[in-house]
Write a protein that binds this DNA or RNA. Structure first.
Lengths: 252, 252
DNA sequence: CGGTAGAGATTGTTGAACAATTCCACAAGA
DNA sequence: TCTTGTGGAATTGTTCAACAATCTCTACCG
C-alpha cells in the first residue's frame, strides 16, 4: 500500500496584463506550503484519487509531496475543517464517508441557500451568460458520454445559482457543500444516470431565470432538489455502509 | 483513565445485548492539545481579551500556554478558518477587524438563514421554552444593566431561531457568524443602546412563533435584521477605520 | 528630506526525537 | 472455538532546535 507518487503542481496565479490594485496586496496571492498542499489533496479527493474511507498516512504522503510532517498536518487540519477529511485522535486522518444524515442535511441547506438566491431574481441577471455556459457544458458532456464532466458541470451550475445571492460567505458555503457531495458521488455506483436525469430541468430553471421570474425558478429548483435528495438517499443508504464494510475488510 | 475497556460499536445494527452506545461516542473522544488551545483563544477573543487588530505572537502565547510553536500554529489555523483571526504570511496572525462589507455580508446570510428557519414554523415548536428562556435572560440583563450579558443573550436568541431549521450545518454556520459579530461589537463604542432597542421586538417574534405563525415571524425578523444592519453599518464605518488607524499607530 | 542598507526580530519549514496510542499477531485460558 | 491478555511494531501527538525567508525599524548617506 505504498509507492503512491503525487506530482505537486504549484499553481501559477500570475495575471497577464496590467496588474491592478487588488493584486497589489500580494498577501492574497502568496500561499503557504500548507495551503498549497491542502489544494493538491483537495483536488485529489475531488477527483477520486483518494477514496472515501481511505487513510492518509502522514509518512507516505509527506514523503511523496516532499514536505515535513508538521506542514502536512497543517494541511490536514484545513481539510478536516472542510469536512473532507475525518480526524481520529491517534489513528490518523481518513477521507470522510458522508452518512445518510449528512446527505439529508446538505440538501436541507442547499434548499435554503440556493432557493433564496434564485428567489431574489427580478430581471435577467448579469451573470446569466455564465450560468447558461454551465448548462451547455453539461449538455455537451452528456452528448459525448463524458459522465465525469457532466457531474462537474452540474456542480458549477448550482454554484452559479448560489452566487446570485451576491454573498461571499454563501459562495464559500456552497463550495464546501458541493465538495462534500463529490464524496457522496464517489460512493455511488452509477452517478451517470443520476445527473443525466436532471438535465432538462436545468433548462427549465435557466429559462425562468432569463425571464426574470425568480419565484418561478425557485419553485422548479425546490422540486429539483427534493427529487434529487429523495433519489439519492434511497440509492445511497446501503452503499455507504458497504463502503464502510469494504474499508474494514481492506486489511486482508 | 485505567481499568475499564469499552468497546464502542459505531454502527448499531440492532445487535441484541448491545444497546445504542454510539451516542456515548462523544464521551470517549478526547481533544487534541491544538483544539484545546484553540478553545482557550476563542473564548479570550469573544470576551475581548484580545482586541481586534491585535497581533498574536507565537512566542509569547506559546510560552504563556506552555505549548510548542507547532501546536500553537495548528490552533491558529483553526481560528483563521473561522474568520476570527487573519493570517498574513510572514507577518503573523491578527485578531480580525471585520470590514463594513463583512457586516453587510453577515447580515445578508443571516436574513437568508434565520428567516428560512423561522418561516417553516407551523406550530409551537418543541424548543419554544429554550427560545423564551433566551428572551427572558435578555430582559433580565437589560433590567439589571448588565450590557455584556444582554448582548450574549441576544446572540443565543438568534442561534435558537436558526436551530429551528434542524440542520447541524446551519447551526455551525450561525455560530460562526455570531462569533464574527462579536468582533464587530468589540469595535463599536456603545453596543448597549444597540441591543437595548431591539428587546421589545424579540417579544413580538417570540409571540408569533408561539402562535405557530411562521410567515408572520419571518416578516418581523426580516425587518428586525434590516433595521439592525442599517443602524450597525451607519455607526460602524468610521469605527472600523479608527480601529485600523489605532493599530497602525500602536507602534509609537 | 528622502531613500537605502543592514541589523534584529518574527515567522515558515524542516528534521529529529520521544511519549502516547493503536494495531496486529499470537499465546493462554475457559 | 471463542474470548481474553500480552508483547512488539507501526503510527500519531507533541516538543525542540535549527536555519531560511521575510518583515520592521533604525541609522546612515546622498
Amino acid at each position: 500500500m505504498v509507492g503512491t507518487i503525487v506530482h505537486v503542481v504549484i499553481e501559477d496565479n500570475g495575471v497577464p496584463g496590467v496588474p491592478d490594485l487588488a493584486a497589489d496586496r500580494g498577501l492574497v496571492s502568496r500561499k503557504s506550503t500548507a495551503e498549497r498542499v491542502a489544494g493538491v489533496l483537495r483536488k485529489r479527493i475531488a477527483e477520486g484519487y483518494f477514496l472515501p474511507g481511505g487513510r492518509l498516512s502522514e509518512q507516505d504522503i509527506g514523503n511523496a509531496l516532499g514536505v515535513s510532517r508538521n506542514t502536512l498536518r497543517e494541511a490536514f487540519r484545513l481539510l478536516t475543517h472542510e469536512r473532507l477529511l475525518a480526524h481520529e485522535l491517534n489513528r490518523g486522518v481518513f477521507v470522510r464517508i458522508p452518512s445518510v444524515e449528512d446527505v439529508v442535511d446538505i440538501y436541507r441547506v442547499r434548499k435554503i441557500i440556493e432557493c433564496a438566491a434564485v428567489r431574489g431574481v427580478t430581471a435577467k441577471p448579469a451573470s446569466f451568460p455564465r450560468i447558461k455556459e454551465k448548462v451547455d457544458i453539461g449538455d455537451e458532456a452528456a452528448r459525448t458520454g463524458n459522465w465525469k464532466d457532466l457531474g462537474t458541470a452540474n456542480v458549477w451550475f448550482h454554484q452559479e445559482l448560489a452566487a446570485l445571492s451576491g454573498s461571499e460567505r454563501v459562495n464559500e458555503l456552497v463550495g464546501r457543500l458541493t465538495a462534500e457531495l463529490r464524496l457522496v458521488f464517489h460512493i455511488m455506483a452509477e452517478p451517470r444516470r443520476f445527473h443525466e436525469r436532471y438535465l432538462p430541468r436545468n433548462h427549465e430553471i435557466l429559462d425562468s431565470i432569463e425571464a426574470g421570474d425568480g419565484p418561478g425558478a425557485e419553485q422548479l429548483l425546490m422540486k429539483y432538489l427534493e427529487d434529487a435528495e429523495e433519489q439519492l438517499v434511497g440509492a445511497y443508504a446501503d452503499r455507504a455502509v458497504a463502503a464502510r464494510a469494504a474499508v474494514a475488510a481492506e486489511q486482508s
